[in-house]
Amino acid sequence: MRSRGFGGFAAGALVAGAVLWSFATTDVDLSRLLSAGPRIADFLGRMVPPDPTVMNEIVKGSAETLRIAILGSLGAVLLSVPLGILASETMVSPALYRPVRTLLAFIRAIPLILVAMLMVGAVGLGPLPGIIAIAFHATGMLAKFYAEAIDGVSRAPIAALESAGAAPLAQLRYAIWPQMAPVVARDTIFRFELNLRESLILGIVGAGGIGFYIQTYVRSFQYEKAASVTLAVIAMVIAIEGINVALRRRFA
């Protein structure tokens, strides 16, 4: 176990080194660190009471966020159907599904907010870059899920229908689709919920939706208004979570 003891020591030294390096090279002086607590308390104090006059902006921003999530999810579904087939072990050869799976893993590795910033740079401000970013980002996960749904289909009933003389389209409708449909529905709803949640903050980088107002109000020192919008976002996240739990119970 000598080598293992050395490995443990090396790992400990590495972690200690990383922490020391971060402290030494980040300009955090002690007085600023100690005053951070009171400053945060002061900042939060200025957010009270939340300003209820921004109700219009909240409704408008939420509606736009919802539209971004819906259209972004639609885009992701449209991209994920062909890519899911191309990433399936049972539908295409390894020469095809391996690179497609690598591509999907690569897409998943790029944070949504980064994609959104790039899209804002590419197509300008507004909901469009948000929709494109959501569609792109969500495809990395959804296409993988669709591929797994395809690969999870039991072959035996398909062979039985083929043996009975059913044409390929009939096999698809009566043996393949009934097995896939619940999985596809569950995964799509799950991804839509993530899209809705993630699109709440897209506005912060200018990609449309309710996040735009948080950024605007914080930058213009209207903290009471920023507080109202933030509370609305939190309420929506909780509501989405509640709906999600209810849906999952149905599919369990």
Binding site: P157, A164, A166, A167, L169, Y174, Q179
Partner: peptide
């Protein structure tokens, strides 16, 4: 088949009707 090879989530009648698919035109079957 030894392992039945049925479509588990479909109804009994649907599974039995699946045996008719080869006797229908491909369009009607699909």
């Amino acid at each position: 088949f030894q392992e039945f090879a049925l479509v588990e989530r479909s109804s009994v009648l649907r599974n039995v009707l699946n045996g008719r698919l080869g006797r229908m035109s491909p369009l009607r079957a699909a």
